[in-house]
Computed example of a mutant assay.
Amino acid sequence: MTTNDKARTAKPGADEVYDRIWSAIMERKLQPGTRLKEEDLCEVFQTSRGGIRKVLQRLAHHNLVNLVPNSGAYVAKATVKEAREVFQARRLIETELVRELTQTFTPAKKQALEDHVALEEQAHRDGDLNRRIRLSGEFHLKIGELADKPVLTHFLREIVSRTSLIIAQYQLASARHAEQTARHPCCEHRGLIDAFEQRNADRAVELMMEHLCHLEDQLDLASGINGAIDLKSIFAG
């Protein structure tokens, strides 16, 4: 067996299992309310039930999964009140992060953000909407990393994940179609980069607020969806 063959057959560790489920949530492959059957996850990831339970408990700790006694684990659903609070929290945290990054912006940081936006645009050209959704969320986390605010970025990571659940649950069909057909899907992110480069903190804050409000305006907070998902098809390969 070659080294590559061993790598392909090696059982994933707990962190990798967590990251793959987290990515599926970020990419909206896992809809709110989806049951995460332990036996299916054990088969998919070739790991023990005890290991899967630890991962599910970790996801529950981050409010991405609900553990229901005598029933099982389910991808979390957000109430309308929770959805609005998540966006309120994002506005509070991310406006602070963009102010911080504006003060310390460098050509290297600009390049890091531009490289990331290029990945978003490539995913859009490839028609890979799920990957672009994940990359879009990670752009916001990268702002926190580049601002050197690890505590705020840690909080933001959880909130960005919950945003993906909220969007999967409440996004209007028209907004979903607009995402798929947008000619310039990353223009708001590029506008932020320009504001950073100009050291214009007020403009950066204004753009971030507009961006987050735009995301929230795409939601129908009077309804929601609940799709049935085949876990094996999501994590196969």
Score class of each variant (00 low, 15 high):
T2E: 13
T2C: 05
K6M: 09
P12A: 05
G13C: 07
D15I: 11
Y18E: 10
Y18T: 09
D19H: 13
R20F: 00
I21V: 15
E27R: 15
G33H: 09
T34S: 12
T34L: 03
D40L: 02
L41Y: 02
E43Q: 11
V44F: 01
F45Y: 04
Q46T: 10
N63I: 02
V65I: 12
N70P: 00
S71F: 04
E82A: 15
E82H: 10
E82Q: 15
A83I: 08
A83L: 11
R84K: 15
E85M: 12
E85W: 07
V86G: 02
Q88A: 14
L92C: 03
T95A: 03
E96I: 08
T104C: 09
T104L: 08
P107C: 06
K109Y: 09
A112E: 13
L113C: 04
D115S: 09
H116E: 05
L119E: 08
E120L: 02
H124Y: 04
H124C: 01
R125N: 07
D126Y: 00
L129T: 00
L129C: 00
R131N: 09
R134Q: 10
L135I: 07
G137W: 03
E138Q: 15
L141H: 08
G144A: 05
A147F: 09
D148A: 15
L152F: 10
H154T: 15
S161C: 14
T163R: 11
I166M: 06
I167M: 14
L172I: 03
A173R: 14
S174H: 03
S174W: 03
A178Y: 00
Q180S: 00
T181Q: 04
R183K: 14
C187T: 07
D194N: 11
F196T: 09
D202H: 07
A204K: 08
M208Y: 06
M209C: 04
E210P: 00
S223F: 08
N226M: 13
G227R: 10
G227H: 12
D230G: 00
K232A: 14
K232V: 13
A236Y: 00
